[in-house]
Deep mutational scan, measured.
Amino acid sequence: MQRVNMIMAESPGLITICLLGYLLSAECTVFLDHENANKILNRPKRYNSGKLEEFVQGNLERECMEEKCSFEEAREVFENTERTTEFWKQYVDGDQCESNPCLNGGSCKDDINSYECWCPFGFEGKNCELDVTCNIKNGRCEQFCKNSADNKVVCSCTEGYRLAENQKSCEPAVPFPCGRVSVSQTSKLTRAETVFPDVDYVNSTEAETILDNITQSTQSFNDFTRVVGGEDAKPGQFPWQVVLNGKVDAFCGGSIVNEKWIVTAAHCVETGVKITVVAGEHNIEETEHTEQKRNVIRIIPHHNYNAAINKYNHDIALLELDEPLVLNSYVTPICIADKEYTNIFLKFGSGYVSGWGRVFHKGRSALVLQYLRVPLVDRATCLRSTKFTIYNNMFCAGFHEGGRDSCQGDSGGPHVTEVEGTSFLTGIISWGEECAMKGKYGIYTKVSRYVNWIKEKTKLT
């Protein structure tokens, strides 16, 4: 034993070699072989497995989906700052455009905790909710729209109204504003409101030439003092309507412009014939205590009207009353817009006519005020429907199939267009061939041609 100890002390290297040989010859039971080890760690190889990531292109799944990435790591994937920024906006807080917040056709661009709407022409605001041009839906104005110097929408209202708090709607500024039905039992019968379409306001006024200088022999019209197929109006439903009495009662109609003036057809009036105007009328054979009678003290036909040349060209006249009318729910003026808007309103496509005229061709006159909704007829169809001249200051309205029309005794009465609950004068009943005849239409004086003249002559002093 002493000898062994001496050998170990003198030859430590020998001992180490012996131990190493023993270990190498022993069977290893701690580690699995290569094949079995792979069965336990069965993990798919990654895209760049075996390579240094710093030297390969980034992978979106590896960089940002398996674990949260930084902007720089995302930049490695896209290799483009702009594309990385677009991805980053949604990656950080989701897609803010998912709810489609942009209105009126706006395009949404996502941002971090926010979004941006790219608005089409005519709109602005956070969600493109603000109209900035009158060309689109009248700028959301209830009545009139004008573009300011910086191309912003400025709404306005006709006389007797003021802008509401929203700067879009119009509200009454006087007790009985024009064009409004205020009798409670008839307010439910107000005709369907007309909503502004998209309009090209630059070209809204037709490029028409008034044929002022045409000389033409007097034409022989049949029954051209021209509501057939209409309905009984309720008291106060058309408070701007008046009836004219002269040699015979209810020979023509008219509309209240203001307390002192009536507008009617020029062919209705004769110099030297006494005319009485009755406002607030409903049943011409009954006294309903809503009527107001006034005498006409002055007749002003349009300066281009000449019955000797043509009885229905420039067929418009103004009547001055001896005493002002007292405005109330049964006696209310009709609204008159400017030339541009009167023309736009007419193009809405349908209007209402009213009167006490004959209820059928050569038949009896109506006792109760009649009204009828009539569609506008395109000019080409209008011209083809008659052998008589249709001037540019006239328009056609009615039904091709016949059966409904204005008729004798309705002449001078109103053709009105309702705009968001307020009625505007767009025409004056003038003439036609018979009444409600198939293929024939009622012919009306186009008020847009005469609004400046009306307003100039009827100013209240």
Rank of each mutant, 00 (worst) to 15 (best):
E433Q: 15
W261Q: 01
Y450I: 01
R364G: 10
C155Y: 01
C155D: 00
G349I: 02
C170T: 02
N328Q: 02
N59C: 04
L376E: 03
G439D: 06
T381L: 09
E270L: 13
I429M: 15
V263N: 02
T16H: 14
C134L: 03
V451T: 06
E72D: 12
E10K: 14
Y450V: 01
A317H: 00
H361Y: 11
G355N: 08
R226I: 11
C335D: 01
Q370W: 03
V248Y: 12
P235I: 10
G253P: 08
A250M: 07
I210L: 14
C155T: 00
R226A: 08
E285Q: 12
F31T: 15
V248R: 13
R140G: 09
L163F: 01
V377L: 08
H282C: 06
G442M: 14
E456T: 11
L189E: 15
C128K: 03
V257M: 03
V154F: 12
T458H: 02
T417V: 12
C128H: 03
N48H: 01
G413W: 09
C102N: 02
C18R: 04
L103G: 10
K438F: 10
T29S: 13
V227H: 07
K457D: 02
N283I: 09
V273R: 11
V451F: 04
D338L: 04
L32N: 12
W88H: 04
T422R: 03
T158D: 04
T218A: 07
D111L: 14
T389F: 14
V153L: 08
A207M: 10
R3I: 13
S114C: 08
F348N: 15
E434N: 15
M8Y: 14
K51W: 04
G160M: 03
N166K: 03
Y161F: 11
L425Q: 03
E72Y: 04
N393P: 02
V331F: 00
T381C: 06
W261E: 00
T186S: 06
G21R: 08
D33W: 11
F424W: 15
L103R: 09
P239N: 02
S204N: 07
K293G: 04
S184W: 08
I214L: 09
V359T: 15
G413A: 12
W431F: 12
L211W: 15
N38P: 05
D322E: 12
I390S: 10
C382L: 03
T81N: 12
R191K: 11
K438H: 15
P12K: 11
S220T: 11
R191P: 15
N127W: 11
Y444V: 05
T194V: 12
T218C: 05
S204Q: 06
T426I: 01
K457A: 09
T85S: 08
N104L: 03
S255W: 01
L24F: 13
E401M: 11
G94A: 12
D110Q: 12
N147Y: 10
T389H: 14
L372S: 15
E286G: 09
Y312Q: 06
E35Y: 14
V56M: 06
M6Y: 10
N48Y: 01
K137M: 14
T461V: 11
Y91M: 06
D249G: 12
Q96I: 10
V228M: 06
A317N: 00
S423L: 08
T445L: 10
S156F: 12
G355L: 07
C102H: 02
N328H: 03
V359E: 07
A26F: 10
Y312F: 12
G230Y: 11
R404M: 05
A173R: 08
Y391W: 09
L163A: 04
A366K: 11
A366F: 09
F424E: 01
V353M: 05
Y161V: 01
C268N: 01
G280A: 04
F238H: 04
F221S: 15
Q2W: 15
F121Y: 12
S156Q: 10
E79R: 06
I7P: 14
V195K: 10
C157G: 00
G413N: 06
V326E: 10
